[in-house]
Design a protein around this nucleic acid. Structure first.
Lengths: 215, 215, 215, 215
DNA sequence: TATGAATGAGCCTTCATTCAT
DNA sequence: AATGAATGAAGGCTCATTCAT
């Protein structure tokens, strides 16, 4: 890999000052790749620097520590994820709440599945204190907003939007994980679709107003 | 050195060669405590051995590696967790599916919340490859069984029991995490109860038969 | 970045290209301060450059290495020290040898005590090979000269002026160090005086001709 | 070097548990040698371990840090030095103060000269805070004792024994350093003798009671 | 079974120095 | 003359694991 990339900003020389952004991104990309492949712990700064074709010391010019890099990677993951969902929702008119929710679910599952490896490495290894959710929070916020809007519009009825969002998000998360856990066999496409449908139905059911009886 | 010191700790035992089980348990207990307190990475085999009042080498007599110990800890966690849930369910007659499910949910949330620290340390740090679910699987199996029984009895109707179980379990997981994320403030008792109720209702809704149509 | 900012610090100067001397001195001053505060090893070229408000690369325009800077600092220390002593001696008529010697001793002790921190940092840390004495040599030369003049004038009698100077200088050094070692307590003024007197008497005794007998 | 030392406690195998003392001493010896040869800074733990034919990790089994090793080396130096002086003094009857002092001076100079390289490396490099004297203190204490005894016996008269000791000790130190600074040329034997004599005379002069006047 | 001295690979980080601009 | 991004060698230290006793 990293083969024929035409990586030259200026003309010839070897040791050069590149746009800081470029460097940082290169470092992050390299790290991401390595983290997925070998795991965080097994990836040394040396590896990362090498992967980004920089000297080891250069790494520390852009990130104060391995941990900081991981933070940046998490941030990037969440941002990208959110953007993707937003985009998917926005393909439907603002008032089409059900459609938007469906888009959110489907794209969420899809995107998640397309990036589990990264997601897992970035969020599940090596983090002592920060509670799981904290990081995915923006995603949940996004969902909360949608739920509240739909509630206000009378499309569905949610009592505790946050709690509901948490439940739904985790359901999504779980289904995705389970899918992954099944291994890279089985009808990937059909399977995904089936699960997406089940999930959507679950969401809708969850938002469906009570029948009246129950307890 | 420390040669002929007749250091008897208990009554009968002369000094070494304790029941292997005892040793292993002592090691696990010490590790668990340390892992929670200082984190896995920061806990050395030395620490664990010291905590169990054993020589370092002895550790390797009972566990082939640090990683193996972690595995044993995970197993123990899941087993305990399951037993607790089973016990709670069994407090209700075999045919009382709704009650059993409710017990499952409530006890699950309760137990989870009572052991987050341990759960997190044991499941979220330092994972080489094992997919999240794999470990909690027994718990899910338990739920799957219940769901299928209820379905057979016509109490509710589930198409894909496993998928449903996954969803429900993750919903539970998520609510618990969210609760923890709120920090150790707020009305702990009332809060737990509120969440437990919301979760139960959620479960029931999810299991409620369709209205008939779909759109 | 920080491109077109018209950042004029002083009045006339446009920004760079200051008198080389000024730069070098600024660098030395900054280094001296930092060395005393944090120690030589803990002070990086970065720190020094920052302290002198210069870019790191600029440092190397004025000094070929950190070590060279240290050398310059040593030189400056000795020169200043000598100048101070000379000045003190010159406050007495050329022929007043005893008075000059006394001035040398007292000012030496005084000056040394006023600059121990610097002296120590500059002379005692981080020495590759230069023998202690080499650096203080000028001071000793100064004393040798005085001793010889006095000898020639018949005021006292010294066989080996150099050896005597070495002894006397080291006695001074030792008393000063001991004073410092006592910590910043005790009557500082009275104490210094007492020590200065003891030292002077010692010097005089040392230069006093033999009684005749002895061996 | 480290040639034909019969270094085997037990019989054959390679990785073996040696007497802790032995190991520590081996480490110290290796370090001492390397420090003298290449300087402290330039000597890595790796080097030391290799010199003592141990694994790097073993070093840390005996010394918590490089710095700690240096401390041990200093201690050893001072202890040895003192023992040597004491021994030399004790070759003279307890009451023979002048003889004992002379022995102290001569042996001091001799011993010092025989170990300058070590002394310098151990005391002059790399020590930020501890004041010079602190370490040689025991030696000074020894001298103080002698001075006081002689004073009590009326052999000489010292007002401030400590100050005098400091002066004398530093004079000795200085002469030794100067000798070294002359380089390894010149008549080493005759030179040493000459300097020892000068120093002794100096000491005696310094202890000789005042003539009575002062100016 | 139990011990704990010994091992040694490996990692993060620092920093003096260079050099294209 | 001045800059500061880039370099990369070097080093202290940790710790899981082994093995002679």
């Amino acid at each position: 890999m990293t083969s024929s990339t035409p990586d030259d900003t200026s003309t010839t020389a070897r040791r050069r000052t590149k746009a800081p952004q470029t460097r940082a991104v290169a470092l992050m990309d390299a790290a991401e790749q390595l983290f997925i492949t070998k795991g965080i712990a097994a990836t040394s700064i040396d590896d990362i620097a090498a992967g980004a074709q920089v000297a080891k010391g250069t790494f520390y010019l852009y990130f104060p520590s391995k941990e900081a890099l991981l933070g940046a990677l998490q941030q990037r993951f969440v941002d990208t994820f959110c953007a993707r969902l937003q985009e998917a929702m926005d393909r439907h008119a603002p008032g089409k709440y059900r459609a938007r929710l469906k888009a959110w679910v489907e794209t969420g599952l899809e995107t998640y599945l397309d990036n589990v490896a990264l997601h897992d490495v970035v969020f599940h290894e090596y983090r002592p204190e920060d509670r799981r959710m904290r990081n995915d929070n923006v995603v949940i916020t996004q969902l909360v907003t949608l739920l509240k809007q739909g509630d206000a519009a009378g499309v569905w009825e949610v009592e505790d939007a946050t709690l509901t969002a948490v439940i739904l998000f985790n359901a999504l998360h779980g289904v995705a994980d389970d899918t992954v856990a099944m291994g890279p066999h089985a009808n990937p496409v059909a399977d995904r679709r089936r699960r997406a449908r089940a999930l959507t139905r679950f969401f809708e059911q969850a938002l469906r107003p009570d029948d009246g009886d129950d307890a």
